[in-house]
Design a protein around this nucleic acid. Structure first.
Length: 649
RNA sequence: GCCGGCGUAGCUCAGCGGCAGAGCAGCGCACUCGUAAUGCGCAGGCCAUGGGUUCAAGUCCCAUCGCCGGCUCCA
């Protein structure tokens, strides 16, 4: 018991949602919450004290406003999982003698901890570690915060051989408060806050094992990272695991194979092969893209895949991008396979003479680029070594920046809307290493700002994350599983026009330098298709479906009629196949459902005699008979609208 | 590229020193069927590739290639 001479002194606490409390000076938050009672108090993880997040064991020293953090609060969830990561570290320390600790933060949906083991850990051992974690939770060890001096901290971690922790302490700013958290026999350097005790953890699960460079630097040692997650209720963990399973089922690599869309082969690692069904999706995406770009005033170009070395030297790629490029020789001359389309577009611009009245000039290109990606980074269609960018370069007057950027944003919005993606926007500003005058940067960044503001679009600023030639706006798609993908980007570029000495003739008859926008909407056709596959779970909307309808005759007697039905729909450009195998109708339907074909047209005796088809929809099942020409017209209309107005039948 | 794991039939997987297996898919035959799997039969393999250990190697060891989970990087 602490002796306190001011034991009678009271302080006033404003507890959010619960009103005012008066308690003795030095009362801990936990004690106050116990007194207050209620659901929130029981689920409390930490508290926000006048805006600062602190442990529940923090004593109250003055009149304050207090807010309880629970798992529902993202900060609360982080604290919960951060404590789980400490328990993981404790378990590992108990089980393995010679192990050194790296770092162990909470991340989205979970946590990890990095360890240096003498002998690599095998995945089977995760179960053992999990069991030890359970034990520590049962032990219900209180977490105690202690602050110590830099010298004390260094001595402590040096004595314990924790070289990584020593490095962390050494790198802390001189004025930093250095704190450790202790739970039983385990002490870890940590700013906190934490749960009050390990017993507050309920469902902790270790998920996988991976290598990770110390401090993310590929020149430093590689540690072993254990990933896990934690939830206050078993049910929440189960739901999360179910979501992971669901994501696995939607994996575009699996669906790509099952739906026969594309393949990869050892003969060309990272180079995708598109199959006929996959090509249909590509072509439909391109068709939509061309229609919309023509409407938006773009002109399409195509530039060569292989270009001379000198061009890449001029563009700066030779110096800055060489390790990602492929090279070849033609008649003794050095050439490179293009990793980007811009230099080609520069040459197209330079082949003409432009007046200010010709601008903006919007040159679009479905450009196939090749980039040498490190072998370990390849990932299905998401990360490949050759891909098609839906590129465009807009050459314009400086005063046209705002309008053009707004135009691109509008186009981006139209595209993502069609696929049912929501998205958020990020604005990246001038990085350390960059080119151009301050004035240019300010002007460009202000222009991007202005467009976002005028459109009332909320955005996040990524300070210093722009490209070296200009600021940019990135679009992050959110798919049906809630994952986000960086997709479209709009980059302002003052550098390329300079390097290539681009000019236009102004109203004053003098030569001026145009400004350029570099932008993509799909990003890369390959990656976008991968996203679509996962977003839709392979269930493509009618206009993208590789097979839009399948005709299913019930017996051989209807084969002739079935062929007529197929031919009738094919004449109008509908992608329709015929399943005339000697199988039962149920079997054919099952197969069509698994292939996610939008319409199954059952043709039996009744349909033949009435010139109709029995329509079965992928989503809703049997819809009953419809006259063939009525169905055909409806289907055509539905395909043409690209799902903008889904009809009921 | 780095760390760890994995490569067996088209696909999903079993076999883990002693004769290479199953289900699905495929092919053939029979069945002619009304909204998610008809039956029978037949094929299908340089067990990723190259080396080694062993009387004997999918199985153990080494190397290479590819894939998977991460790190780094990125459309």
């Amino acid at each position: 018991m602490e002796k306190n001479f001011d034991i009678d002194e009271k302080i006033k606490v404003q507890l959010a949602g619960r009103g005012r409390f008066e308690v003795p000076l030095g009362t801990t938050i936990a004690a106050l919450l116990e007194q207050a009672g209620g659901q929130t108090a029981r689920e409390a993880i930490a508290a926000r004290l006048d805006g600062k997040v602190v442990d529940l064991c923090t004593p109250l020293q003055e009149d304050v406003a207090l807010e309880v953090l629970t798992f529902d609060d993202s900060k609360g969830a982080d604290i919960y999982r951060h404590t789980a990561s400490h328990v993981l570290a404790q378990a590992v320390k108990r089980l393995y003698g010679n192990v050194r600790l790296g770092i162990g933060p909470a991340i989205e949906d979970g946590f990890y901890y990095d360890f240096h083991f003498d002998e690599p850990l095998s995945p089977e051992e995760l179960a053992k570690i999990e069991a030890e974690i359970e034990k520590i939770i049962k032990e219900d060890l209180p977490l105690e915060r202690e602050e110590l001096s830099r010298a004390e901290a260094l001595r402590f971690f040096r004595e314990n051989g924790e070289t990584y922790k020593v490095e962390l302490v050494e790198d802390l700013p001189t004025d930093a408060v250095i704190s450790c958290y202790r739970q039983g026999d385990f002490v870890d350097l940590c700013a906190g806050p934490h749960l009050a005790s390990t017993g507050q953890l309920k469902s902790v699960k270790l998920l996988n094992l991976a290598g990770a460079y110390w401090r993310g630097d590929e020149n430093r040692p590689m540690l072993q990272r254990i990933y896990g997650t934690a939830f206050p209720r078993k049910k929440m963990l189960d739901e999360y695991l179910l979501r992971l399973e669901e994501a696995k089922k939607r994996d575009h690599r699996k669906l790509g194979r099952e739906l026969d869309l594309f393949s990869f082969h050892e003969e060309g690692p990272g180079f995708p092969f598109f199959h006929p069904r996959g090509m249909i999706i590509r072509r439909e995406l391109e068709r939509f893209w061309r229609e919309e770009h023509q409407r938006a005033g773009y002109l399409e170009i195509q530039t060569p895949v292989i270009l001379n070395r000198q061009l890449w030297e001029q563009s700066g790629h030779w110096d800055h991008y060489q390790e990602n490029m492929y090279f070849t020789k033609i008649d003794e001359g050095d050439y490179a396979v293009k990793p980007m389309n811009c230099p080609g577009a520069m040459l197209v611009y330079k082949s003409g003479m432009y007046s200010y009245r010709d601008l903006p000039l919007r040159l679009a290109e479905m450009g196939l680029v090749h980039r040498h990606e490190k072998s370990g980074t390849l990932h299905g269609l998401m990360r490949v070594r050759s891909f098609t960018q839906d590129d465009a370069h807009i050459f314009m007057l400086p005063e046209q920046i705002e309008e053009e950027v707004a135009g691109v944003m509008q186009l981006v919005d139209k595209f993502y809307r069609v696929f049912g993606f929501t998205y958020h926007v990020e604005l990246s500003t001038r990085p350390e290493k960059s080119m151009g005058s301050d004035e240019m940067w300010e002007r460009a960044t202000a222009a991007l700002h202005a467009v976002l503001r005028n459109k009332g679009i909320p955005f996040k600023i990524n300070e210093g994350d722009g490209s070296f030639y200009g600021p940019k706006i990135d679009f992050h798609l959110r798919d049906v599983l809630g994952r986000t993908w960086q997709c479209g980007t709009i980059q302002l570029d003052f550098q390329m026009p300079e390097k290539f000495n681009l000019v236009y003739i102004g109203a004053d008859g003098q030569k001026h330098r145009p400004v350029m926008i570099h932008r993509v909407i799909y990003g890369s056709l390959e990656r976008f298709i991968a996203q679509l596959i996962e977003h839709y779970g392979g269930v493509f909307p009618l206009w993208l479906a590789p097979v839009q309808a399948v005709v299913i005759p019930i017996t051989e007697r209807q084969h002739r009629y079935a062929r007529e039905v197929q031919a009738c729909l094919q004449r109008d450009g509908i992608r329709v196949s015929l399943d005339d195998r000697s199988e039962k109708m149920g079997y054919k339907i099952r197969e069509a459902q698994l292939l996610k074909i939008p319409y199954m047209l059952v043709t039996g005796e009744k349909e033949e005699s009435s010139g109709s088809v029995a329509v079965r929809r992928r989503e809703t099942g049997d819809m009953g008979p419809v006259a063939l020409d009525v169905f055909r017209e409806k289907l055509k209309a539905r395909i043409a609208t690209r799902g903008e107005e889904e009809e009921s039948n």
